[in-house]
Computed example of a mutant assay.
Amino acid sequence: MAGYDSTADTLKHSLRVGALLAPVVADLARRAVEHDLSKLADPELSAYNETVPLLRTTTYGTAEYERHRTAMGDALTHHYAHNRHHPEHHQGGISGMTLVDLIEMLADWRAATERHPDGSLAASLPIQQQRYGISDQLMQILTSTARHLGWLDPS
């Protein structure tokens, strides 16, 4: 159409996308403040006090690590039930999660690797893929996101 200037329509569209993204940003900001606060009271607190020192001395994905993790029993079940960034929170596992859940989960995985002397997000991602039955496509998205955010270990 001759004489049409798309500037106004583009600005309107841009503002609308911004308005739609605002609740996502607010949800992420809330999660950043509230992440894992259920660990600060029982039944979780005492189990984490006992188990975290043991987990820190083992390599993620090993049988020893898994034994320590599962020994948390009801405290871990409580944690998963109250924290939607865990696939165990959702009836459908990882496929029941939202994109916001996945972002918080990925940040949680990155932070967890930092507690271990041999921790590595790049090394743990294949373990997580196997554990949660993550599709190759979603794993590529998670890996690309981690790389984009600078969360992957230096090569």
Rank of each mutant, 00 (worst) to 15 (best):
G3M: 04
G3P: 02
D5S: 04
D5R: 04
S6H: 05
S6E: 09
S6K: 07
T7F: 03
T7M: 06
T7D: 05
A8I: 05
D9H: 07
L11E: 06
L11V: 04
K12L: 14
H13T: 12
H13A: 12
A19E: 12
A19T: 05
L20Y: 07
A22D: 10
P23D: 13
V24F: 06
V24Q: 06
V24C: 06
A26R: 09
D27H: 01
L28M: 12
R30H: 07
A32S: 12
V33G: 03
H35L: 14
L37K: 12
K39N: 10
K39Y: 09
A41Y: 06
D42F: 12
D42R: 13
P43V: 15
P43H: 15
E44S: 15
E44Y: 08
L45S: 06
S46P: 10
Y48S: 07
Y48H: 10
N49R: 15
E50H: 03
V52T: 13
V52S: 11
P53S: 05
L54G: 06
L54H: 04
L55I: 11
L55T: 01
R56S: 05
R56L: 05
T57D: 11
T57E: 11
T58A: 08
Y60L: 14
Y60M: 14
T62A: 09
A63R: 07
E64D: 13
R67P: 01
R69T: 13
T70A: 14
G73Q: 14
G73E: 14
G73S: 15
A75P: 10
T77I: 13
T77E: 15
T77Q: 12
H79Q: 11
H79W: 13
H79D: 07
A81T: 04
H82V: 06
H85Q: 12
H85K: 02
H86I: 02
H86V: 02
P87F: 08
P87M: 12
E88L: 11
H89K: 07
H89F: 14
H90S: 09
H90V: 14
Q91T: 08
G93L: 01
G96D: 11
G96H: 09
M97L: 04
L99D: 09
V100S: 11
D101R: 02
D101L: 00
L102K: 10
I103W: 00
I103L: 05
D108E: 13
R110N: 08
A111N: 02
A111C: 05
E114A: 10
H116L: 15
P117N: 07
D118N: 08
A123N: 09
S124G: 00
S124C: 00
L125C: 04
L125G: 04
I127L: 09
I127G: 00
Q128K: 04
Q129C: 00
Q130T: 14
R131A: 11
R131P: 00
Y132E: 07
G133D: 05
I134L: 04
I134H: 03
I134P: 04
S135R: 01
D136M: 01
Q137E: 13
Q137S: 09
Q137T: 08
L138R: 14
M139L: 10
Q140R: 12
I141R: 07
L142D: 03
T143K: 03
T143S: 05
S144F: 00
S144L: 03
T145F: 14
A146M: 07
H148N: 02
D153T: 06
D153N: 13
P154L: 03
S155K: 15
